[in-house]
Design a protein around this nucleic acid. Structure first.
Lengths: 151, 151
DNA sequence: AGCTTTGCGCAAGATTGTTGCGCTGATATT
DNA sequence: AATATCAGCGCAACAATCTTGCGCAAAGCT
């Protein structure tokens, strides 16, 4: 992991669709050398995969919501049951066990308030052993996810 | 945007590196038809781009932190100044203006507690007009981001 | 029915990814 | 100091994939 690898990671996080030769010559490297470095980063697992980034707005998801959930108990079986339900719910995009007041922090998107109401009723309120729920709406994106820092 | 487009989006969010021909024949389509659909989704902006997904752990970022920040005032100039500072800070991965107690919610990663201490001092505490800060650590990932739902 | 539009598959050609080979420079070994 | 070993590079050929023009067929419209 030298400074060239770093620059490769930086570039590929931003745009993985451009030809290796392009990237290579931006780095003052031959295409084959660059290609082999990329393959090696993939093999090591640092590059976990490649994805298409979709536009949330163009997809019609106008609402981004963070939901904090506290459970009724901390028994292992309760946590396991809750987590399994979360993983099975397609409307829950992301979930972390967290420190602080709440137990879990979730990320959810919805088309509009009606849609969020549906998700709230059918998905969130259906999760097992929830004691309390705290909802935060994202009003405006200030800075979008653009990958991890790679100095 | 029919059901074929939907399945294309679903597949490309998971893995955008496989040959179009593969995907095409999974969908019972010719490679050229599939290719043209993809290009059209790109042109419409629904597909915003392609990225490499990096492994947070393999990158050495053992800490994932959510930070809620409240500002001293709601004057336009204060908000603007704060937001500009956030955008300029490489350690802040994501930031949203949010409803609720706090004004902003940030996402940050760090290598370890020492590193987080550095970020806290040099980056977060250096943001202008912060009145209060509330930190939440992610203890364990329950569900990872895997793209938007595309029924 | 006739016309237009849309989306398809086929196939050729252009682009990009992939790999064997030999070279060089750095480091280790005697 | 001389030699051996190794990692990483560029070149060039080859393979895989992308891209596009063309003709066809089904669906919508007048």
């Amino acid at each position: 992991m030298d400074s060239i690898d770093t620059r490769i990671l930086h570039a590929l996080q931003r745009d993985s669709s451009r030809p290796v030769a392009d990237l290579a010559n931006e780095l003052g490297l031959s295409a084959s050398a660059c290609h082999r470095r990329i393959k090696s980063l993939e093999a090591s697992g640092i590059i976990a995969g490649y994805s298409a980034r979709l536009s949330r707005r163009k997809m019609g998801f106008n609402l981004l919501v963070f939901v904090e959930i506290t459970l009724r108990s901390q028994e292992r079986s309760v946590l396991d049951g809750f987590e399994a339900a979360v993983r099975a719910a397609p409307d829950i995009l992301e979930c972390h066990l967290t420190s602080g007041q709440a137990d879990y922090t979730l990320r959810v998107v919805a088309r509009d308030m009606d849609d969020y109401d549906r998700i709230h009723r059918d998905c969130l309120a259906a999760l097992p052993d929830v004691s309390s729920m705290h909802t935060t709406f994202a009003l405006r994106p200030i800075k979008f996810w653009q990958g991890y820092p790679v100095r």
